[in-house]
């Protein structure tokens, strides 16, 4: 009897539609977010994450509306990230029905924003999203750097140091995405995931690279993640969330079935 590892389907939402790109470009349409969220809930998703990748602030209202609709029908935790820059952005999403808020670029530009947000709303609802890319050469010790703007801009900040700092500032959870792996379907960056998980006392969600169900198992067992996040394997009907959970259970991982 203990805490289950979580499976979190992620919906990248652009202008009110679910999309999925490969390494943040080449975007494909994958459907209506409310309909997809309901399906994942029925299939047994432990949480659902929405990443708003809408470029303009005009269309942010669309995202608020999506969250409101989902929250009225789906009774599992909902995380919303993407373009969250102010305390007011957070409040709007929480009022719309989000439980946790993902902060990414804004944390890099202004780390104190994380502190302010955690003090105001509690660490339990502040997830710091880290986009990391390996920057060490083959013969060097592993080193990852954080990137902003959907993986396009390097920051010079070491990913492990950054994760530790963000937890210090009040992050209650880390959503860790490997930019090298995102959309590639070759599996999580397990070294990165376990390095971050070992470094911080809060739960870590592994993200970026899931193509097979074995990858989810590896993320938990070798990556030491507390939760695994995937998008495209679920959107395009390759696997259901239920199949993913059954596969993890068969591999000896405790899940909610």
């Amino acid at each position: 009897m203990s805490l289950a590892k979580r499976i979190i389907p992620c919906l990248d939402v652009k202008d009110g539609r679910v999309v999925k790109g490969v390494q943040f470009v080449d975007i494909r349409d994958a459907g209506d977010p409310v309909e997809i969220a309901r399906r994942y809930d029925l299939e047994g998703a432990d949480e659902i994450t929405f990443l708003d990748i809408t470029a303009t602030s005009d269309n942010r209202d669309t995202m608020v509306h999506v969250v409101e609709q989902v929250a009225g029908q789906v009774f599992i935790p909902l995380t919303v990230g993407g373009g969250i820059r102010t305390v007011e952005d957070i409040r709007r999403m929480l009022n719309a029905g989000a439980d946790k808020i993902g902060i990414n670029s804004a944390a890099v530009f202004n780390p104190k924003f994380v502190k302010e947000a955690a003090e105001k709303f509690g660490s339990q609802c502040i997830v710091v999203a880290i986009d990391a890319k390996k920057v060490s050469a083959k013969n060097e010790p592993d080193k990852w750097e954080i990137f902003t703007h959907g993986g396009r801009k390097p920051t010079g900040i070491d990913a492990i140091d950054w994760a530790i700092k963000m937890v210090d500032y009040g992050a209650g959870e880390i959503l860790l995405t490997s930019m090298d792996r995102d959309g590639t379907k070759i599996g999580f960056d397990l070294e990165l995931t376990s390095a971050i998980s070992d470094a911080v006392p809060v739960p870590v969600i592994a993200s970026g690279g899931v193509g097979k169900l074995e990858h989810l198992v590896a993320g938990i067992k070798q990556g030491k993640a507390d939760a695994v996040l995937a998008a495209s394997i679920f959107h395009f009907g390759e696997f259901t969330v239920g199949e993913a959970k059954q596969h993890m259970a068969d591999a000896g991982i405790e899940v909610r079935l």
Partner: peptide, 30 residues
């Protein structure tokens, strides 16, 4: 890890109307 975050099993220690139709050790979100 702290917080204790996610779905854990809830062992019912007493009979109570609030547990009606909820199986013992059902998972709830914490």
């Amino acid at each position: 890890k702290i917080p204790h975050m996610g779905w854990n099993q809830v062992k019912q220690r007493i009979d109570h109307p609030m547990w009606h139709n909820i199986s013992d050790c059902a998972r709830f979100y914490f």
